[in-house]
Design a protein around this nucleic acid. Structure first.
Length: 546
RNA sequence: GGACCCGUAGUAUAGUGGAUAGUACGGUGGCUUGCGGAGCCACAAACCCGGGUUCGAGCCCCGGCGGGUCCGCCA
């Protein structure tokens, strides 16, 4: 158990010994000078005293053991305020340095999660719309994985769609797109040219054409995924479930859950008035998206026995998932509590909703390329001597794009904005990377050889920074329980602000008192580590120089 | 017609019933004989409207208004 949890439980123990029952220990707002707080309003009725009196009495009667991580307990109006001791600050920094990149990572908990994410459609380049599913899903996967879960990332490719009535124009435009990229990737160009030749030679059979679509699409997708640093354990597209669908429909009919309705087969939700019927087979006998999703659940449950299946899919499909999850439960495949739709808002352009047909679309790869270029330009301005400029520019470019998305609550719609996407100042990914690089720079210049030891705090900025560092796991667990990575982003921004203030106020290298200097080195090390660990959970690389 | 989601400074956002609503961009004014100025400090600026629940509501409930989304033969 880390210091912060200990501080909470120790506080609860001390207060209950002082006569306060069922203590709820809260984290006070930022502007309040206290490390933890207990509001006393709820005790007013049972104790027949005012909250102010209760707080005063409790604060006067507490007994704090020697060497406790609890330093001081005082009354402030109707609140009991708790302050951490020096030991707490030492422990907090030490545990980060000891665990380093495993800090706040838990041992395996024997739980399995399948994350359904990204799911681009074959034969269409990924747009910025696919960005959200990909990186929100990836971040949730990283977070749960760090908390000890066995996580399976599954890219549920949209490979079922029939070839368009007129596939050649689309094919050509795809080829042109590949060609534009060929400057940078000769292998890709080679492959495309080769395949295109086969096509020209008269190989126009639809299935072969479709196979080709899939192959070249996957080449392009994998290139983008590699740039985004996103990996998948499975690539089971919709077509993988083709053979299961009929059996699902039969099973639903046999169990009396589904029935024929005007030639089609539907599932009705008699117990829920607000859920519309779920169509699982068309009049012409063909199955649907809904049927394949049921097949997918059945397959995943049989294969992986997951404790949770998480779908990182746009919020516009919320109703579909309510229908799906209830159907899956009625069929006995899974409890609906184990099926989680992690929805997110739409990205739209100032001119309106994105639409490929109307030419109103921003391709993910174009966005990334633009971001790399911008990063490179800024590096040339700020740090022209830097080595590996291109490589670093990519990390910063990707970091900016990912952080921009992951730093806000996923349910909100986003109006796409180039300036905001390419901003590297203020609350951005590059700001966090910059803060990390500054910390690394100090450590590099000092040339630390052994783990630094934290022994003493001097300044308020140091205490404030350490206290925040110690709450890291709290933010990770919050993000996990709500499937909201932005809580980690918010945490990291506050951490960077605090670190930069410390950086401004507390010199490290020029400090003459050895104890203070070593403590500050330890604090720089711990801060750097937590920023890196947090960025990792968002899928962002913490660069050492930029 | 029914259902779901979202309304916080000029703009973009955080805020799991509790203290003076946090942050950024933009604006104004400052900080380099200090470890990286992609930074730091100061100032101005916000909870859509009306009821209700509660000791206490940006947060919960009801009703409006505004924006978005979904509502059987697409995925």
């Amino acid at each position: 158990m880390y210091a912060f949890e200990k501080l909470r439980s120790e506080t609860a123990n001390i207060l209950s010994a002082a006569g306060l029952k069922d203590v709820v220990v809260e984290i006070p707002p930022e502007n309040i000078d206290a490390d933890l707080a207990i509001p006393c309003f709820t005790y007013a009725k049972s104790l027949k005293k005012s909250p102010v009196e209760i707080a005063k009495n409790v604060a006067e009667s507490v007994k704090i053991p020697k060497n406790s991580i609890v330093g001081k307990i005082t009354a402030m109006g109707p609140y009991v305020n708790v302050y951490a001791s020096d030991k707490y600050f030492c422990d907090s920094v030490d545990e980060i340095i000891t665990d380093a990149d495993k800090y706040a990572h838990k041992k395996p908990v024997k739980k399995t999660m399948v994350v359904d994410m990204s799911a681009p459609n074959i034969a269409k380049p990924m747009s910025v719309g696919h960005l959200r599913s990909t990186i929100i899903g990836d971040s949730i996967a990283r977070i749960y994985s760090s908390l000890g879960w066995n996580v399976i990332r599954d890219n549920h490719l949209g490979d079922k769609k029939k070839v368009e009535k007129n596939p050649i124009p689309e094919l050509l435009s795809l080829y042109v797109k590949f060609h534009e990229k060929s400057d940078k990737d000769s292998e890709l160009d080679e492959k495309a040219r080769e395949e295109f030749k086969k096509l020209e030679n008269g190989d126009k059979e639809n299935t072969k054409l479709w196979k080709w679509f899939i192959d070249v699409s996957l080449i392009e997708f994998k290139k983008t995924y590699s740039e985004l640093d996103v990996d998948f354990d499975l690539w089971l597209g919709e077509s993988f479930y083709n053979d299961m669908n009929r059996a699902i429909v039969d099973e639903a009919l046999k169990k009396g859950i589904a029935k024929k309705d005007d030639g089609a087969i539907i599932i009705k939700y008699e117990d829920y008035k607000n859920i519309p019927p779920f169509l699982i087979q068309k009049k012409d006998g063909a199955t649907l998206y809904s049927t394949r999703d049921l097949s997918t659940i059945k397959y995943r449950v049989g294969e992986f026995k997951p404790d949770k299946i998480v779908y990182a899919v746009g919020g516009e499909q919320a109703q579909h998932f309510i229908q799906l999850f209830n159907a899956a439960e009625m069929l006995g495949y899974a409890k609906k509590e184990a099926l989680i739709h992690v929805g997110f808002g739409l990205i739209s352009l100032p001119e309106g909703k994105m639409s490929t047909r109307k030419g109103r679309v921003i391709y993910l790869q174009d966005l990334l390329n633009k971001s790399y270029k911008h990063a490179e330009k800024i590096i040339n301005e700020k740090n022209p001597e830097l080595k590996n400029k291109k490589k670093v520019a990519k990390k910063i470019g990707v970091g900016a794009v990912k952080f921009n998305d992951l730093s806000q609550n996923r349910v909100k719609n986003i109006m796409f904005n180039w300036d905001k996407m390419l901003s590297f100042e203020g609350d951005t990914g590059p700001y966090l990377q910059y803060t990390h690089a500054r910390a690394c720079s100090i450590l590099r210049k000092i040339g630390i050889t052994k783990s630094p030891k934290f022994v003493v705090t001097q300044m308020a900025e140091e205490k404030d920074l350490i206290l925040h560092l110690s709450k890291y796991l709290n933010s990770v667990e919050l993000a996990a329980s709500l499937y909201e990575p932005h809580h980690i982003a918010t945490y990291l921004l506050a951490l960077a602000h605090k670190f930069n203030l410390f950086y401004q106020k507390c010199p490290v290298m020029s400090e003459t008192d050895e104890k203070i200097k070593n403590s500050r080195i330890a604090l720089v090390f711990a801060s750097k580590q937590v920023i890196a660990n947090g960025l990792y959970l968002l899928g962002i690389d913490a660069v050492e120089e930029m």
